[in-house]
Design a binder for these strands. Structure first.
Length: 731
DNA sequence: GTGAACGTAGGA
DNA sequence: TCCTACGTTCAC
């Protein structure tokens, strides 16, 4: 028995009840939270709590003061009930406490006193993720077995005894060292499938064992010195991560990731499509079409994860989809490729992590057909009427497709309206991810140099490689990630992922979400995706450093996640063409966060630091503009194009005396606002910082008025007409 | 299913 | 002794 806490639990229950009665406001029934550590720690014992390494990037950061947990802290005015570390300070490599000792010799780790790497390993404390026993490997007298080192978590392995006995790490699904705040992950997003627990241990034990033996991260202690193994990484990597070998493995997990997809990028597209079709037919005759087109493959395919939501578009029949594909824009293709590659890479990372942590990522279906069928039944349930035939904001969809392609205002990275992806009706139902911690990435993922086959290291240092990687596109980075483990780690460096663009990716999967968190981008483009409210809320709460968020074309249901979450550093918010976003919703968006803890009051606008706000195509009126001018003192760029309710009075509001926007606005886009007239130009004369006024396609604005504006402003600020009715400050 | 709450381990 | 925060439970 790996974790036989039952006895302790019973004993502790009564005790903790008494304690709680005194401490908790509301008496609760049940067991206490913490595990009582037995005085004599043995193999039957509870796990040692881990503590900060105090060295990693996260540990040396200061608290952000803005995240969920910071806000709870007393020092930030919170009640201090949650007692959790700042999201930004989640230690990347939590270590055993200083008080930990070897269960055999009762001594602490002694690796610091040794020079030889192999000796270091033998005398460092290693905690078994299965039996929790902490020992010096040297103190073990088991010669015919091997320990499996988890190189993601310091001092963690599966001890030779457990490994030899064939015990699996499954028992530590929620208990394993380093699995911090796993329970804080929304279960519907990141969770091992419920059935995982319910399904028979016997069957999973039988299954998982071979999986574990194939894990690329595994290191056998036995005869090979540990660190010489590390130095031979590159060799191991090449063997372990052979693409074709992996392909075999992927074939067994068809609903998560298909090897054909990856290979497809190197081969003939038509052949690949055929092969996908045939393979998918083999895998699941009922799920044929999604494989037939590459834009499906990006992430809403069964490979991309069972939570692939919605996507009625993705369920369309092959020929029709192929025809449409040819009309698509190159950036869309790129975006698809990227999301596909990202998804693959993320899945790979998840697989590795799951293996490292000895946790099953998923339960393989009993038959190959089983899981995909279930998935698609789930997805097909809800299909919204296609919005292409609808009108929004009084502008026919056809026109909305037409105009933006002609108008590309300078300084505004406008997303063009397109077919809105079908949003998820409900949070993912059958997500299969283990409850491992999603930690922010280290700034400089180890090792420092690329290990070579001959045991030496490559002459080029990591930082030089990083500079080279810096020239690659994300798509290319995803390819590099498949080269070897070291490159996989290095390419995950968040410096290479400051911007993540999933624009028009029709399905956002949990794997993608965790990949995003791991990369901690400063800029995230989720425009025209079917991200759900829960997913978005989960993301925002874990991206405290997010500065640019693009959600154009998403549903208000999803965007409303911004109402309850806080993104203090957000500078750019793009909510163009968000369906259902009107004045009432803007009010919710601009009101103080609703997730304040009791006793904690933050009346400041969640979006108070936004400088660039994109509201094109929304049915908003002066009511929203009043709020904006009050709540966004730093707003300098405002896109109100295609807002048919915007008129001269709106401009008057934004530029009125006493408003912050009067002085902060530098760029304003009012193109295709048909109620705006020449009179608005008079109001803009009051703006001290205005540099660009876009009035293109405003029917009631005349060129004469623009020229008059330029003439009158020339005394103080020289303007010019860059295009018809596009006024720009002359530099 | 989810995340707030909390006992207490561990460090200063 | 005080503070931080890990790892757990359980109310919602």
């Amino acid at each position: 028995m790996a974790l036989s806490l039952s006895g302790d639990d019973e004993e502790y229950d009564s005790e903790s009840e008494q304690q709680r009665a005194a401490n908790r406001p509301k008496p609760k029934v049940g067991t206490s939270a913490a595990i009582k550590l037995p005085s004599n720690r043995s193999s039957s014992g509870a796990r040692r709590r881990r503590t900060r390494c105090r060295k990693c990037e996260a540990c040396v950061r200061t608290e952000c003061g803005e995240c969920h947990f910071c806000k709870d802290m007393k020092k930030f005015g919170g009640p201090g009930r949650m007692k959790q570390s700042c999201i930004m300070r989640q230690c990347i490599a939590p270590v055993l406490p200083h008080t930990a000792v070897c269960v055999v010799c009762k001594e602490a780790g002694k690796e610091d006193t040794l020079e030889e790497e192999e000796e270091k390993f033998n005398f460092m404390l290693m905690e078994c993720s299965i039996c929790n026993e902490i020992v010096h490997p040297n103190c073990l007298k088991v010669n015919d077995a091997s320990g499996v080192v988890n190189d993601e978590l310091p001092n963690c392995w599966e001890c030779p005894k457990c490994n030899h006995a064939g015990k699996s790490g499954k028992v530590s699904i929620n208990m394993g060292p380093g699995f911090k705040y796993a329970s804080n992950l929304p279960g519907s997003l990141l969770r091992e499938q419920k059935s995982l627990k319910e399904e028979g241990d016997a069957s999973t034990a039988v299954k998982r064992r071979p999986d574990r033996e194939e894990t690329p991260r595994k290191k056998e202690k036995s005869d090979d010195p540990y660190y010489s193994k590390l130095l031979h990484h590159i060799k191991t990597e090449e063997e372990d991560e052979d693409p074709y070998e992996e392909e075999d493995e992927e074939g067994r997990v068809p609903h998560f990731r298909g090897g054909v997809e990856r290979r497809g990028r190197f081969g003939d597209p038509e052949d690949e499509a055929d092969e996908r079709d045939s393979r998918s037919s083999l895998l699941n005759p009922s799920v044929k079409t999604p494989f037939g087109d590459s834009d499906q493959s990006l992430c809403s395919s069964p490979q991309a994860g069972p939570s692939s939501e919605g996507g009625s578009e993705t369920q369309e029949k092959g020929p029709r989809r192929k025809a449409r594909r040819k009309r698509r824009l190159p950036n869309r293709e790129l975006s698809r490729e990227l999301s596909k590659a990202l998804n693959q890479e993320i899945q790979k990372t998840e697989d590795c992590l799951a293996n490292e942590n000895r946790q099953p990522l998923k339960v393989e279906p009993q038959t190959e057909n089983e899981e995909p069928q279930r998935l698609f039944r789930n997805e097909l349930g809800d299909q919204r009427p296609h919005l292409k035939n609808k009108e929004m904001n009084g502008t026919p969809w056809e026109l909305r497709h037409f105009y933006p392609s002609q108008i590309t205002p300078l300084g505004f990275n406008r997303s063009t309206p397109t077919n809105r992806p079908v949003p998820p009706h409900s949070p993912p139902k059958c997500v299969q991810m283990e409850r491992h911690v999603i930690r922010p990435p280290p700034i400089s993922p180890p090792p420092d140099r690329l290990p070579l086959k001959d045991g030496k290291s490559h002459v080029i240092q990591r930082e030089v490689w990083m500079k080279i990687f810096g020239y690659l596109t994300h798509q290319e980075l995803c390819v590099c990630m498949r080269v070897c483990k070291t490159w996989n780690r290095w390419c995950c460096d968040k410096r290479l992922w400051t911007m993540i663009d999933l624009n028009r990716c029709t399905s956002i999967t949990p794997l993608m979400l965790s990949g995003i968190i791991r990369r901690q981008p400063g800029s995230l483009d989720l425009s025209w995706t079917n991200i759900s409210k829960k997913q978005l809320g989960w993301l925002i709460n874990r991206l405290p450093g997010l500065r640019v968020l693009k959600l154009s074309g998403c549903s208000w249901a999803a965007v409303s996640a911004l109402c309850t979450s806080s993104c203090p550093l957000l500078r750019t918010l793009d909510v163009q063409w968000v369906e259902g976003l009107k004045d009432a919703q803007m009010r919710d968006l601009l009101s103080p966060p609703t997730d304040n803890r009791p006793g904690q009051l933050d009346n400041r606008c969640k979006l108070r630091n936004v400088e660039d706000l994109r509201l094109a195509g929304l049915d908003i009126t002066d009511t929203s503009l009043r709020l904006i001018s009050r709540q966004m003192p730093s707003l300098s760029m405002l896109d109100l194009s295609y807002c048919n309710h915007i008129n001269d009075q709106s401009v008057n509001l934004l530029t009125a005396a006493g408003t912050t926007t009067r002085d902060s606005l530098t760029d304003i886009n009012l193109s295709v606002c048909n109620r705006v007239t020449d009179h608005s130009l008079n109001f803009f004369k009051r703006c001290g910082s205005i540099c660009q006024i876009d009035l293109r396609f405003c029917k009631q604005v005349t060129r004469t008025a623009c020229e008059r504006f330029i003439a009158e402003m020339s005394v103080s600020v020289p303007f010019r007409l860059k295009e018809d009715k596009l006024l720009q400050k002359a530099s």
